[in-house]
Write a protein that binds this DNA or RNA. Sequence first.
RNA 1: UCCUCGAUAGCUCAAUCGGUAGAGCGGCGGACUGUUAAUCCGUAGGUUGUAGGUUCGAGCCCUACUCGAGGAGCCA
Length: 477
Amino acid sequence: MPVPKQRIATLLASGEPETEVELGGWVRTRRDSKHGFSFIELNDGSCMANLQIVVDADVPGYAETIKQVSTGSSVWIRGVIKESQGAKQRIELHAKSLTLVGTADPETYPLQKKRHSFEFLREIAHLRPRTNTFGAIARVRNCVCWAIHQFFQERGFLYLQTPLITTSDCEGAGEMFTVTTLLKPDSSATQPLPKNDKGLVDYTQDFFARHAALTVSGQLEGEIYATAVGPIYTFGPTFRAENSHTTRHLSEFWMIEPEMPFYSLSDNMQLAEEFIKFIIQSTLDRCGEDLQFFNDRIDNTVLETLNHILAHEFRRVSYTEAVDLLLQSNKEWEYPVEWGTNLQAEHERWLTEEHFKQPIIVYDYPRCIKPFYMYCNEDEKTVRAMDVLVPGVGEIIGGSQREDRLDVLTARMEEGGLNVEDYWWYTDLRRYGTVPHSGFGLGLERILLLLTGMQNIRDVIPFPRTPGHAGFGGNPY
RNA sequence: UCCUCGAUAGCUCAAUCGGUAGAGCGGCGGACUGUUAAUCCGUAGGUUGUAGGUUCGAGCCCUACUCGAGGAGCCA
């Protein structure tokens, strides 16, 4: 099988009639003519569209192999590009040779030429990328990742790798997965764990000589580099051990966290808006065929929504204004609206989907409901936090200006019952050459929900991890 | 963790008051055809999630469990 390999996307875009090509792929369907030839719909994952292959009966081995060229099988084909007589494609490939590389028994191959439920496909996560929908998701996801790097690289941000294993006792962002070698896969349940004099597990005897966990955020480490080399961004997996069963939470997800010195909350919001619009524009430019598919088959408002977002400024609403709007709405809320409490999902949904009907940024939240590291405003009641909320998905970005005043920061830590000494390195950043700085976190899978119109976050990541599910697919096999 | 709903053929679903378990798609066989969600005819395919209970009789009613989905909270 010669190099360079040819891809269907390239052929369909620019393949010229009478050129000879060789390529391989997976058969989506085959249609036979009794007049002695067959059509094969071939897909190689490079694009949504299939390449139509015409195989005449005089192609060597036709009679013996064509019956086994079934949905799901893999073939290698050499042939000549021709203008197609059919209306649904510009060109097609007339085979000179056909090699059946791998069969797929039609009796047992799970993917059929019909629509499958996403729940079923989740159970066969090893085969679902061979469907139109999951092929398109893989391409869009790749495109978004590319756009993210491009956005930050073009602006001089430095791509920073923050640790996945962390020993911070509390990063204030949810339950963590412990990383330990005290337990082995084959440990029996009765094997005693080392205990300290308080009767607690003695992590000084563990691999890292202290309790370690998978990161829930790279923000604190990001601040270290942002206050040294200038703006940075992290882009990697993040882990939350929350027992969440929703369409928008994963135990393992990918997050992008930029951190910028000399950025106010207002600068931060501006960057977040530009960032989201850049990702949307790039995906429209580079993955238009896939987005059209999502618009046609998954959610017919996707393209309209994306274009609407591009055309409008994100509406900035202070938390206090948001609460006033909710109180004035005369809606019956399941949870009461009261200044000083978290906005409930129903409140956020009303604001972004019904009232403003566009992405909004809610900022200046009450300090009592936000973590210690957020900058305290002069009113002493609010902090410089912001959430970007988008219709249909909800919170897609959360961020803040960080508290850069040592005395205020330590007071806030004590207020929250944290051990200030545990964060000696974090407070050092305020002790030596402190600067105002800001940052935010974007959930990769959440912006993919926005871009594709997919309903469930478990379907926009190749191998979703949720409570009870860490197999190759959605089942604990 | 809490609340709600669900589990019937390979897939998606139906089954009246508790009374012989069905359809579409897919598979297989055939017919037809520069076809393209192909079309037409035929055919196979089931311990109704698991365990127990009520009943002359349970897919249907009751109990427990397992798994799945949606919502809430947590957040990205």
